[in-house]
Amino acid sequence: MGNDDTLLLQAQGLDRQLGPRWLWRDLALQLQPGDRLALVAPSGAGKTLLLRSLALLDPLQQGELFLRGRTPAAWGLPVWRSRLIYLAQRPVLFPGTVRDNLQAVFQLAVHQQRHWQPETLAGWLESLGRDETFLDLDAERLSGGEAQLLNLLRALQLDPDILLLDEPTASLDPASTAAVEDLLAGWLEAGDRACVITSHDGEQLRRFGNRRLELAV
C-alpha cells in the first residue's frame, strides 16, 4: 500500500503490546472526508491508547501513519497534532475563564496564523444552547459537562482535519449530547473533515457513526 493523498488519514501495520498482551496487531485504518468512525471495543481493549497513538502522544511501536499522504515527520509533530486533535475523556482546563482557555491555545507557535473568532464561536455556543456569558465563567468551576463543551470548542476553533473524540459526551445530559452531535455533524460537512469517536453508549455510536471499527480483546 502506498500513501494515498486523497485519504485524510491512513494507518497501516499498527501493533501495540501492553506488557505481555497484544492490544492489536497489524491494524489498518483509513479515514475519508465525512467519515465518522465509531471505535467499538470493551473497556480495557485500548480505545484510548489507539486514539493517543494516532495523535502520536505515545511512540508508535510498529506501523506507519499518513495524513493527506504525508508522514508525521514530514508534517512535524506539533503540526500533525494541530490537524488531528485528540480530545481526552477528562478535559484539562487551564486556570482562568472559559475565554482565557479558548484564547490560550493561540499562543502556541503552531497556531500563530490562526486567530480568535468571536463570531464563529458565538454561533457554536448558540447551537449548544449557551450564550456568551459562558465565556466569562471560571473554567475551574465548570461542571463535567460544561468542561467537555469547552474542550470541544477549544479544539474546533483550531480548524483541525480530524477530531479524535474519547467519550466526548460522557458527562452531558441527552439534550446537550444531541446538540453536540448536531454541531459535530455540521462541522464535518463544512469541509474535508473526519472524526473518530468512542462512547460507552452503543446507541450513540450507531446513531452518530457511519463506519465502525471493532477492536478485539
Binding site: A55, L57, P78, V79, R81, S82, I85, Y86, L87, A88, R90, P91, V92, F94, V105, Q107, L108, A109, V110, H111, R154, A155, L158
Partner: peptide, 16 residues
C-alpha cells in the same frame, strides 16, 4: 502530566 499532554494534543511543542 494531563496538563502537559493537553498542550501537546493541541499542537504545542514539548517546550511549550
Amino acid at each position: 502530566r494531563e496538563q502537559v499532554e493537553a498542550w501537546l494534543a493541541l499542537g504545542g511543542s514539548r517546550w511549550e
